[in-house]
Design a protein around this nucleic acid. Structure first.
Length: 491
RNA sequence: GCCCCCAUCGUCUAGUGGCCCAGGACGUCGGCCUUUCAAGCCGGAAACAGGGAUUCGAAUUCCCUUGGGGGCACCA
């Protein structure tokens, strides 16, 4: 890889036009990993130059997501830095001056074309199967014409004067050398008529002024990089390194978007994904350590991350694999930790009748029983509610075991009750010691007997191991539930 | 339409000329374990887009085709 002679300074530059998309967050993660691996600086810069598309609360949502994933930034909103401000809307002067400099230097010109004209021009181009693009009319305006437009009070935009011939080449750290004929580039806008810069101008100015060493961004920017190179040259700035990350795709292989379901990391958080699982999963989407590593933590990621091992191909976001990975991380969690993380979900989803906050000591006994069954924290309530509710609600039919007449079930429960009552220690071991032989005594298969008891004590056919569940529930609850089951069977 | 990028199992990927009749993981299928559900363990099916060329030898290099994606705004 190239010699990094100076400090690595990289930036994540989201635009607050929507909520933190997993694609953007993956870009943030890779950028952050690159910075941390090289001991460089990770900078967050808000690209809020589109007044019309600005979304309320988006900046905070983006920053929250970065924090949630543990991607801390060295410069940017909230932490400041020597290269601020870090909101582009607060740097308008810089861009306006750069635009003026370009116009004065003959690298750019003012364009007075109305949006209507541009629209008609484009429609015509499409109709004639010609490549869409500005026809450069204002590039050749006479002083007289220009004066005339100014007199009419038309506020111009500033367009870049793309060389009419020649080629532009740059090297991308992931894609390699990319070359484009300048004739394919049109005179793009640098400064809008509202005084705000376009992405192209603002991005180039800021990356230069903030001394960004590596521009790491999504693949969708690859085709505008030649324009940026032209801009860097015109402004007399030296070129940073570029690395264009492969895109994250939806199941239909198109750019992952809203129609593909949950794409905001806020949603993943609410669904009960762990940030460490998210980081692990996202890191492996377009990057790999070797031919076998799947579960890899943050530190190891930092230690091993490199741009060379990023693939060139877009990757489909697989919910399946993420779900599996989340389960792996949940199983690895210390009981206390998992209980802690479940609390907000229990709070949110448990029936209103249950007292809040739930008893932590009781929860700590429940967690080991459901830990290996949980894939999402959002399953907390459905996996544990029967431990909390007073009266179980379930279909009486569930008490009817395969090949077992109701009378036999009634008998089984009636035989069980006094013995459970009399059991000295109500723990899993003692329960098994009592109930397993009892199944034989009653002439029942263990599957039938335990199944019956399971439904009676939990109200469901799938639950954690019976004896442990009964131990956690405690004798009183169990007896009460067995009597209730008896009542249902007799109805 | 034009330009750019990409192309290994359904999916994420390993693979940088011989170690590959292609390895791992998710998912899937079968089995084991077992009081249910999970988890776990064992095993199976499953891919180098096609065609040329280079080479003693190509998943790996080159060309073409095909396919996919991205871009072509006073959006980022």
């Amino acid at each position: 890889m190239l010699q990094l002679k100076s400090m690595v300074r990289v930036r994540f530059a989201p635009s607050p036009t929507g909520f933190p998309h997993v694609g953007n967050m993956r870009t943030a993660l890779f950028t952050w990993l690159f910075a941390r691996h090289h001991g460089g600086r990770f900078i967050v810069r808000i690209e809020d130059t589109d007044v019309a598309r600005r979304v309320e609360g988006a900046v905070e949502a983006i920053l929250d997501s970065l924090r949630w994933l543990g991607l801390d930034w060295d410069e940017g909103p909230g932490v400041g830095g020597d290269y601020g401000p870090y909101y582009q809307s607060q740097r308008l002067k810089i861009y306006q001056e750069a635009a003026r400099r370009l116009v004065d230097g003959g690298y750019a010109y003012r364009c007075y074309c109305s949006p209507q004209r541009l629209e008609e021009m484009r429609a015509e181009q499409v109709r004639r199967h010609q490549p869409p693009g500005y026809d450069r009319r204002c590039r050749y305006l006479s002083d007289e014409e220009r004066f005339d437009y100014e007199a009419q009070g038309i506020v111009p935009v500033v367009r870049f004067k793309v060389p009419l011939s020649g080629q532009t080449t740059f090297t991308d750290l992931i894609k390699g050398e990319v070359t484009v004929d300048n004739s394919h580039l049109d005179d793009f806008v640098l400064l809008k008529s509202d005084g705000y810069p376009t992405y192209h101008l603002a991005n180039v100015c800021d990356d230069h002024l903030m001394e960004i060493s590596h521009v790491i961004r999504a693949d969708e920017w690859l085709s505008s990089t030649p324009r940026h190179k032209l801009l860097y040259d015109a402004l007399g700035y030296s070129l940073p390194h570029f690395a264009h990350l492969p895109m994250i795709l939806g199941p239909d292989r198109s750019k992952l978007g809203k129609r593909h379901g949950a794409t905001s990391v806020v949603e993943f958080r609410e669904q009960g994904y762990l940030p460490e699982a998210m980081v692990n999963f996202l890191a492996l989407l377009g990057w790999s350590l070797d031919d076998r590593t799947e579960i890899i933590g943050r530190e190891e990621l930092i230690r091993n991350f490199s741009l060379e091992r990023i693939s060139k191909t877009g990757a489909i976001f697989s919910h399946q694999k993420l779900l599996w990975m989340n389960g792996v991380y949940i199983r690895q969690l210390p009981v206390e930790d998992l209980a802690q993380r479940m609390m907000p979900f229990l709070d949110r989803d448990l029936p209103a009748s249950i007292e809040r906050p739930v008893d932590k000591g009781y929860l700590l006994k429940i967690v080991p029983l459901i830990q290996e069954r949980m894939k999402l924290l959002s399953e907390s309530a459905e996996l544990t509610d029967f431990f909390f509710v007073d009266d179980l609600a379930y279909e009486a039919d569930l008490l009817l075991m395969e090949g077992l007449p109701p009378e036999r079930s009634i008998e089984a429960l009636e035989q069980s009750l006094p013995r459970l009552q009399a059991l000295p220690n109500f723990d899993a071991e003692s329960l098994e010691g009592l109930l397993r032989p009892l199944a034989g005594e009653l002439g029942l298969k263990t599957g039938q007997f335990f199944g019956l008891l399971r439904v009676a004590t939990t109200g469901r056919t799938a639950a954690p191991p019976l004896f442990q569940t009964m131990e956690v529930l405690g004798r009183d609850r169990c007896l009460k539930r067995l009597r209730a089951a008896l009542g249902r069977l007799k109805d």
